[in-house]
Design a protein around this nucleic acid. Structure first.
Lengths: 193, 193, 193, 193
DNA sequence: AATGAATGAGTGTTCATTCAT
DNA sequence: CATGAATGAACACTCATTCAT
């Protein structure tokens, strides 16, 4: 048990160190030796858990994507109407990432980089499935505007992602009523007209 | 004149080569030696025009940002109403970047990377000024919903950017009616309610 | 023990290689790649032991300075009179460096170069302390002419250094009686008049 | 005439710039491009006057050596006795170089570097001839101790050179009586005993 | 499993030198 | 004569990865 825990700790420590460094310094400027230092392990140890730097980075992406997806939907209450459910999702999205900027920065960097192509399409689909299902169902149950689900998702995620960037950039501090207003703007676009 | 043209050509060739490589392979995996090869110049020549790799990349960002900003607004017709003007901007945005994916990929990578912090805030403000002015005026003239301009811009740019990514990802080909629908979704969110 | 020896050997090998090359070819014309080759290590290995080329060169200077200072005084016999002690020091100086010309060439090059300024003053003082103490005591005990010790040291070291250069230049082979004569010349200058 | 003057000026400017840079930064860290900038000429222009960097550096050495040799002997008065003539030479040596530290630093760096080997032996001999002759004659006329002239010169030049270094190092400011004392020390060593 | 010294290919950059103008 | 853009070999240094311990 101790060993398993230790191993777990070590792998986790490496992933955390990678997140820490890449979110701050980018893929380049995050050498494995620094990751090792930050994780308090030897450089060689990383290669017990990950075949290469690329694989480490991709593993971190997958792991974060799973975690954040769960987090974004964790307050979802299927008994409520879609307006409230989407509102909760929208606000949770904003709050989770503004409270966890490292994860946001890493995910943004990754998904805008050629690294993304290293993740098999099927894996990507699976990772995005929960959110995709959530919003697609809203479309299919005619709770929102009749529009291809992919476009709907793209619209919602793009607008809230952009809002998070605005907040994290520090050039504009959103109040809770700003946030409410932002949600209205989104909702008024996607609701059944 | 010949000299000016030549110099211009060489600097331009380096910038183009950088765009080509980084949009495809990322900042890492785009060594200066490859940039030189692609631009048909000697490695050392790059350093006549740019002090370092970082500066080259930043210069490319500024140059692209200026060009694309102009492009996005080039069809703007102040005599029309804001709905039509914003629609034209929205569609032009989509068309320009889906036709110039390299520029889109580069700009996305750059603005999600720590490189962005190397651009002075004042320069960034200046670069975004035209689009900021355009949309802010829409708010101030009460042509659209009364919402902080920064949030409005973030909303519009985020949603269209996300749409461009969807199209470029290849997983969904938007028809022109899809696009029209997407604009409605955006417009219905931001119009005066 | 094996590890310690090995590590010691490698660091030592790098320092020796550096001495070899710089004494022969100067700071420029002694690339790190050549140092690596000469030391039978990989180029990168040098950077395990030294942060940069400058630091390697400075470390070599300090190490040589310590070693040679010890060597120059190793035959000193405090029970003898100062004339004999200084004579022994003078001759030992000549013999040590004419037998170890690489060390002489390196030290001369270094201490006449801007590199010297990279060594903190306090470190320099400490390195020169043993010889300074030796000659200063000769002044203070009134064994030699009453003259500021710094000037005395400068005089003695300058004259013997110059003699070593003459010998190493190959344009004049000093016999042992030449050497004795040279010491007389020095001694007659510094002795109590 | 204008052209000749100009050319002269330019060559001189290049030599001065080289002296300036190398005395301060060493051979390495004195790139030709900097020399050109400092001399207010184009990089290519240097190659009209000097075949290569090495040749430029050697030419500077020869030129400085000629100039300084003349300077060191310029106050020599053959009508005086050798004690006074050597004293004048000794003091002039000290004063000239403490007032022209760049020349001292350059000459020291050069003559302790492998560059020296690029100067043909015969040229070196010729350059040192005036001083050699001066001191050799003192030996031959039995004005000073009977000692091989080479050793005598080496002794005198070494001791005064070392004194100059002491002064320029800033760690000891010699008063004029210190200087006088230093000369006594030298003279008492070389005078007829 | 874990280490971290060692590797060496590869990187960004420099700089002596050339040559078209 | 003079320029300075252009060259590209060479340099200092980095860093993902390996492997003996």
């Amino acid at each position: 048990m101790t060993n398993i825990t230790k191993e777990f700790d070590k792998k986790e420590a490496i992933l955390n160190a990678t997140l820490e460094l890449i979110s701050k310094h980018g893929f380049h400027s995050s050498p494995m030796s620094e990751v090792a230092k930050q994780a308090n392990v030897a450089a060689g140890t990383i290669y017990h858990y990950f075949k290469s730097k690329d694989e480490l980075i991709c593993a971190l992406y997958v792991s974060l994507k799973e975690r954040t997806t769960t987090q974004l939907l964790k307050n979802d209450d299927a008994s409520k109407n879609y307006r409230d459910r989407i509102r909760a999702f929208y606000l949770q999205n904003f709050h989770y990432f503004t409270k966890n900027p490292k994860e946001f920065y890493f995910l943004e960097q990754f998904s805008n980089s050629p690294f993304l192509q290293q993740i098999p399409k099927t894996d990507l689909t699976k990772l995005e499935q929960p959110i995709y299902d959530f919003l697609r169902k809203a479309v299919f149950t005619q709770a929102v505007r009749d529009i291809p689900p992919k476009i709907m998702i793209s619209f919602v995620m793009g607008s809230v992602g952009s809002l998070i960037k605005l907040q994290l950039s520090g050039e504009f501090q959103l109040t809770s009523s700003d946030l409410e207003l932002a949600f209205f703007t989104c909702w008024d676009g996607i609701k059944k007209q």
